[in-house]
Design a protein around this nucleic acid. Structure first.
Lengths: 195, 195
DNA sequence: AATTTAACAATACAACTGTGCTAAATAAAA
DNA sequence: TTTTATTTAGCACAGTTGTATTGTTAAATT
């Protein structure tokens, strides 16, 4: 087969081009033409890889999720102190740098766009809910949690805080800068952990 | 037939029609034609009240914010126990019924849509940040806050929890139902208050 | 009574949309 | 080299978009 780049690689390049377009022009600017141009391809070429726009949309979303999951798992496999690991994992979700800020914006744009079409599109879940539960369970297993806490409630609360801060960091990045994000997260973790 | 309703009333009707369209079809379905049809008006009529789409967008956003603010202020003026009032105020923001769920969805759609156009559009702030600070300050003034809390951090955390839960209630309303929303919020408030 | 203005409706239009189709170019296999 | 499959480009198409223009009617003002 003609393999300057392989098929999957091209699909990823197109998906990444879509991210860039969304970052630059928002979801309303994410037309097949704009994406093709950003990817340096013709309309026909793009259509060769994705038979319609929804296919590309779902693929691009799934790829965002995969990339984030990979980063988190890489962090989780490092050998760190439990409280440090929790922080490190959360900081892979919450946008604190250019890359994760872009990722978050793309994900948000996707979610808002896809909200009223969940039934017709196979939209991936972000997995943060189960992640929050795992983090709380891990803290508990490490014996770091304070006495008398409700684990289920703590997971729900952590889940809300993660996405809340992520959202604020995205929409009000000037006010909620990386240092303040970290400070707030550390404050919360300390509030539920023994010293 | 002019003057059946006055000018401002018509503008509100059109904005409300826009909300309904967004709820039904999402932001991508919020075209001037769909909005006009939903409002029972012609394109020309709509254009008589809003000279372009951005004007309508900003007006509709502002109206969402105003309505919510009014509801919250009405609650705040009731004579309640501080902790109950805090809960009541937050429950006016977080979507727990059809109306506030719709409001939140519209607001979210707006935010996602105007994200990359903030500079050219005069989009209103939701005011929840200052609201969260006020709530914490009120709890503190009432002597209900636990010792040794960082007020600024508590406000930031409450702000994140409110918007995080709001977001989850919106996108995962099946799992995060009203009772669980209330339970989580009560859990958090109790965790920062003396018994 | 005459004039102006507010409140619409109808239509036109250029730009842009996703998608389908055809044909050419390219590379691999024979 | 020939054959075959993959990749790419270009364009047509029908539909939708926001907006501009023009026309009509009735109320308000003079």
């Amino acid at each position: 087969m003609p393999k300057i780049v392989n098929h999957d690689e091209r699909m990823k390049q197109i998906a990444e081009a879509m991210w860039r377009v969304i970052l630059d022009k928002g979801m309303e600017g994410a037309t097949v033409r704009n994406i093709a141009e950003e990817a340096g391809l013709s309309l026909g070429a793009l259509r060769h890889y994705f038979k319609n726009q929804d296919d590309l949309l779902v693929y691009a979303m799934t790829l965002v999720r995969e990339r984030a999951t990979e980063r988190i798992e890489a962090v989780a496999q490092q050998n760190m102190l439990p409280k440090d690991m929790i922080m490190a994992v959360i900081l892979e979700i919450v946008p604190i740098n250019e890359e994760s800020l872009a990722e978050m914006e793309v994900w948000f744009a996707f979610m808002a766009h896809v909200k009223h079409r969940k039934h017709e599109l196979d939209v991936p879940d972000d997995g943060i809910f189960v992640g929050a539960h795992k983090l709380i369970a891990y803290l508990n297993a490490s014996g770091l949690l304070k006495e008398g806490l409700d684990l289920d409630m703590e997971a729900e609360r952590l889940y809300a805080i993660i996405d809340g801060i992520a959202m604020h960091a995205l929409f009000d990045s000037e006010r909620l800068q990386p240092e303040r994000v970290k400070k707030t997260l550390r404050y919360h973790i300390n509030s539920i952990c023994v010293d």
